[in-house]
Design a protein around this nucleic acid. Structure first.
Length: 304
RNA sequence: GGCCGGGUAGCUCAGUCGGCAGAGCACGCGCCUGAAAAGCGCGGGGUCACCGGAUCGACGCCGGUCCCGGCCA
C-alpha cells in the first residue's frame, strides 16, 4: 500500500492488522527506520507497533547511515519470514525507491566511499562537474543520457560504479522505468490518493501537531547525542529545519515550521509523481467517502 | 512640514551607459538503481506604484502625485 505522506496509509494498515490477525505490517519508510525519530516521522506508537507486528521500524540508530541495499535485504527477509509462518505481509509506506527495491528485481552494484569522496571533491566545482559528466558520456553514453548534466549526486554514483566494477553503470539495470511489470514475488499494489488541496491541508495540520507534541525536544535530543546524527538520518523533513532553527541558521521557529510544511508538500508531490508512473498500482480516492473506500479495501483483504 | 532612502513576479530582492524584464524561494509538470523525506530538469506567472513630459526608443532621464521606512523639526 503506497501513497503520499499524510494520506492515511499507516492508519489503514494498522486497522487491517487489527481486524485481520494473519496480516503483519512491513514499513516501506526510509525515516521510520531510525530509533528515536518518532514524532517527525509520524511513527505508530509502541502499542500500535506491537499489536500490528510492525517490521522495519526502529532498526538502526540515528548516528548510523542506512541505504536502499540494506533495506532491500531486511525487507525481503521480513516478508519471507512472515510468509514462512503462513501469514500475509502488508507492505506499507511512501518511499518509492524502497518499495521497488523490495518487489522489483533491482540489483545494486557495490559502493566505494573513498572513491565516492574523491569524485565528489572533483564535482564540487562547476568545471569539475562538467568534466565528470563528459567522462560519463564517454564511458557510458546510455547512463549519461538518463542523467541530467547538473545532477552531481547521480553522476558521481554512476562514475563510482564504473570505476569500481569496470562495467558500465547502465549494465546493472534497465532503469526504473523500463523494469518489467513482473515483481519478484506475488504482490497486489494499491495506492491511496487525495486531492492535492485536501492533502495539503492535512499536511499543515499534521506538522503543527508534530510541533505541539514535542518535535523540537526530540530534535534537541538528537543534536546533543555524542555519537552524532548520520548524514542519512538528519535529512528527514521536519528534523533538518528544526535543527537549523536550533543551530541559529533559521531565524524563528515559525519560519522553520513554514519550511517544514512547504518541504512536506513538495515531497508529497514527488511521491505522487513517482507512484503515478507505476501502472501496476490500483488507486483509491480517499478524499470523499473515505470510510466506504477504506472498508472496501479492508473487505477485499477478508475483513468483515 | 523638511531632508534622505525605497515601491520591479505570490514573497525577498537584482537590474551596468536609455536598446526584447532577471534570480532565489513559492507554485505547476516531469525525471530517478547503494544519501531517495535525497538529488535533478522543464514551465507558467509582470500595467517595473500612478499621471504627464523630453527621446527613434524609458524600469532607468525630467516634472508632479500617492504609499512605505528612517532622520530632522
Amino acid at each position: 500500500m503506497v501513497g503520499p505522506t499524510a494520506s492515511g496509509k499507516s492508519e489503514l494498515a494498522l486497522e487491517a492488522a487489527r481486524k485481520l490477525p494473519d496480516i503483519e505490517l512491513v514499513s516501506m519508510d526510509s525515516m521510520q527506520i531510525y530509533r528515536g525519530m518518532d514524532i517527525g516521522t509520524a511513527k505508530p506508537t509502541r502499542a500500535e507497533q506491537a499489536a500490528s507486528h510492525l517490521h522495519l521500524v526502529d532498526v538502526v540508530d540515528p548516528w548510523e547511515t542506512f541505504s536502499v541495499k540494506r533495506f532491500q535485504h531486511a525487507a525481503r527477509a521480513a516478508v519471507h519470514d512472515i510468509e514462512a509462518r503462513g501469514k500475509r505481509a502488508l507492505l506499507v509506506g511512501g518511499t518509492g525507491l524502497y518499495v521497488q527495491s523490495v518487489i522489483d528485481d533491482l540489483r545494486f552494484p557495490g559502493e566505494d566511499l573513498e572513491l565516492r569522496r574523491s569524485l565528489e571533491a572533483e564535482a564540487a566545482e562547476p568545471e569539475g562537474l562538467h568534466a565528470a559528466y563528459e567522462r560519463l558520456q564517454r564511458l557510458d553514453p546510455t547512463a549519461a543520457a538518463r542523467i541530467d548534466s547538473g545532477n552531481t549526486r547521480r553522476i558521481v554514483r554512476a562514475l563510482e560504479v564504473i570505476e569500481l566494477t569496470g562495467k558500465p553503470f547502465s549494465s546493472f539495470g534497465p532503469g526504473l522505468r523500463e523494469l518489467g511489470s513482473a515483481t519478484v514475488f506475488p504482490v497486489q499494489l494499491i495506492g491511496l490518493a487525495f486531492p492535492a488541496s485536501v492533502l495539503n491541508a492535512r499536511i499543515e495540520t499534521r506538522v503543527h501537531e508534530m510541533i505541539d507534541t514535542g518535535l523540537v525536544d526530540e530534535v534537541e535530543g538528537l543534536r546533543s547525542e555524542p555519537r552524532g546524527w548520520s548524514r542519512t538520518a538528519r535529512q528527514a523533513i521536519g528534523y533538518k529545519e528544526v535543527d537549523a532553527f536550533l543551530g541559529g541558521d533559521e531565524p524563528t521557529l515559525e519560519s522553520a515550521i513554514d519550511r517544514v510544511i512547504k518541504r512536506t508538500r513538495s515531497f508529497a508531490r514527488r511521491q505522487r509523481a513517482w507512484f503515478a508512473r507505476d501502472g501496476r498500482i490500483e488507486w483509491f480516492e480517499v478524499g470523499k467517502n473515505s470510510g466506504e473506500t477504506r472498508s472496501r479495501i479492508l473487505a477485499s483483504w477478508g475483513a468483515v
